[in-house]
Computed example of a mutant assay.
Amino acid sequence: MNLQNEDRWLEVRTNIDQPEITIANIIWCFDREKQTVNVLLIKRADFPYENYWSLPETYLREKESADQAALRLVSEKIGLELPGSYTEQLATFTNPLRSVAKKRQISLAYMTFLPDMPVLNPGAGAVAAKWFGLGVDAQHDYLFTGEQLSFALSKLQSEHNFYQTLRTNHHFGHLAFDHEWLLQAACQRIKNKLDYQPNVLHILGDTFTLKSVRIVYAVFLKISVADINNSNFRKTHQQFFEDIGLAENHGPGRPAYLYRLKKLENR
């Protein structure tokens, strides 16, 4: 490339309106006391969407990968380090109508599966960080419930309709930006992978009971735990976990068997 062509190339690049890239991280855990799946939301401290709940999100820096940004995000926003956890990329969200600011924004979304439920410490840009329990409402929509907010994700709305509504009214939803759409995509991804790569089971930690696994499956499948037969489930999903013996028995009744997760291949 000669200097004249190089100058023309640089001029064209300079004049292109480059979109901003953000990183969102959908962080899951399991509450062993309540036996519920939980997702992390933060309450924003700054404009836009001040005091709205949202997924943890940050801008991608010039000298970091998206994977590095996803881990940095968790450390900065909520004071968590993530050794031993499992993180995977969910999707890239590029709908032109998703941006609130004049400059277009593209979001790379990740999911992180924490093996425990740590105490949360909101960092810069957040006034609060809370775990929201996942359930299913009477309309069979995913329902997230926290101390100050409860909201359902409607399965009937299409992506086109969602973003058209967001474009008309930036504050129509319960969460900031398009984060309800990201959360819907996360739930659907986990549900679709339950029978061939259930990475969500990392939230159960090193050892767990089969009942805990059934609880996780049931909520994403939007069915009752009682609808999942214990014996049949163990036979059809035995490739994902292995029996390591009986749990300690601290009361009457037969102790439960404990299992651990086998190494899951990425697909």
Rank of each mutant, 00 (worst) to 15 (best):
A218M: 03
R8H: 12
A218H: 00
I244M: 05
I23C: 05
D206Q: 14
P96G: 02
L90M: 11
Q197F: 09
L3M: 13
Y59W: 10
N230S: 15
Q35N: 03
H160D: 15
F113M: 09
Y86T: 08
I190L: 09
F240R: 03
K34N: 04
V127C: 05
Y163Q: 08
G173W: 03
Q239Y: 09
A226V: 12
L210A: 04
G125P: 07
Y163K: 07
L143P: 05
L82G: 09
L41D: 09
F240M: 07
A45D: 12
E62K: 14
V12N: 11
F220C: 07
R254W: 13
R267C: 15
C29A: 07
L153G: 02
H250E: 10
Y86N: 10
W9A: 15
N229F: 10
L264P: 07
Y163L: 05
Y142H: 11
K235Y: 15
V100M: 08
P122N: 00
V219Q: 01
M1D: 13
F208V: 01
L90S: 08
K102C: 09
N95V: 00
L80G: 09
Q4H: 15
V119I: 14
F172I: 08
Q18T: 07
G135D: 04
C187S: 10
T145L: 11
I106T: 01
I203K: 04
R214M: 07
F233A: 06
N2R: 08
R167I: 04
K262A: 07
S85R: 03
Y110N: 01
V12L: 15
V39W: 04
L156R: 14
L41I: 02
N95M: 02
V127A: 10
F151D: 07
R234E: 14
H237G: 05
D178S: 07
T207A: 11
W181I: 04
L210T: 06
L258P: 01
A186V: 00
S224L: 10
I78D: 01
E180P: 02
D137I: 02
I203P: 00
L114W: 08
V39I: 06
N192C: 10
N25C: 04
W181D: 01
Y217A: 00
Y49K: 02
E62P: 05
L134C: 12
S224F: 12
L71T: 11
Q35D: 12
W131C: 04
G205H: 07
R260S: 13
A24G: 08
A185Y: 00
Y110D: 02
V200G: 01
